[in-house]
Amino acid sequence: MKQTLRPANLAKRILMSEYFVLYLTIVYLIVLTPIIPRLWHPMNIQNVLSNMWPLLVVAIGQTFVLILAGIDLSQTSVMAMSSVVGAVVMTSSADPVLFTKSPLWGTLLTDQGGLMASSPFALPVGIAVMLAVGLAIGFLNGFSVAIFRMPPFIVTLVSMMLFSAMAIFLTKSENIRHLPDSYLQISKTTFSVVSGSLVIAIVLAVIAHMVLTRTLFGKRLYAVGINTTASQISGVPTRKTIIAAYMVSGLCAAIAAILYSSRLEMGRPTLGSTLFIDIVGANIIGGISLAGGKGKVTWTIFGVFFFIILANSLNMLNLSFYIIDMVKGSVILVAALLDVARNRIRKAQM
């Protein structure tokens, strides 16, 4: 009604917008531009993007589970497991000194490398195996949650413990190198920013967005997240939906493992072990609630973007590492506060 207050109106619209986190990130970037001269250096942009894709992929998987009012702590161990298993399949040679103690030595892994060593099919088979690992662990989680009605937090916490330990056990702590070149190419950039990772992440994001907004599965996922009983009575196969969501989460973690280990050029039993907070943090900053029923892929993208920009800018600021944590916490705090402010305004408008 009061159209006269233009700037205030605009501010309110920005604050209320679904793209708020994105705007916030942009404002943050603008403020930092004069301080960090190299912020817009092509190489930095390249860095930011290459950091973003794998985290985005794994965070999207988490989004599916969060919509269900679940949580998946095991994504980090999925990454470790599929990284190790995939590398075992693909590697072209393994050092006997390092790997003779591995339980896989002599069967799946020899000094000639893994099963598909130097085979032209190493890449497709390796990737298929990695995805299968993700799906399998996701299935186990989903099955326990849906069929046995075990609390997701504990189920995924336990599978996190289990599969992290398993990944370390399989290689006896050693990293596996000598992966096929075609695999390493996935994360290599051409035209400065375009890379296999970029393509994979964007395609995945688009598919995930379509799945959530347009498909039967997506709509049922929200329904189950809001009210499982009502959904079940309305003919939603709730158990299948839950299992599927955890499988998506595992799958995404496996894809992220492909991107991460391609970038690191190795299969790593501790891959991603510290990422959980970033994954869930990005989702929640993006606006996705732990209580379920809410969430969009675009929100996840903005949340991830925010987290990546934050980490990158803090690196570029060269703060003493003693205070870097405090600054990081403060920036997240501001973002969270602004989010609260806009929720209040939204409620007041209702």
């Binding site: 900053i285 003693y322 405090m326 916490g329 969270a336 609260v340 209040r344």
Partner: peptide, 25 residues
């Protein structure tokens, strides 16, 4: 401030440890 507990305590987790590191180097 009506912040979500998960985010709030995540922030204090970072800041409190940061502060401790700052004190002790």
């Amino acid at each position: 401030l009506r912040l979500v507990p998960f985010i709030t305590t995540l922030i204090t987790q970072t800041i409190a440890r940061g502060f401790g590191l700052f004190i002790t180097r």
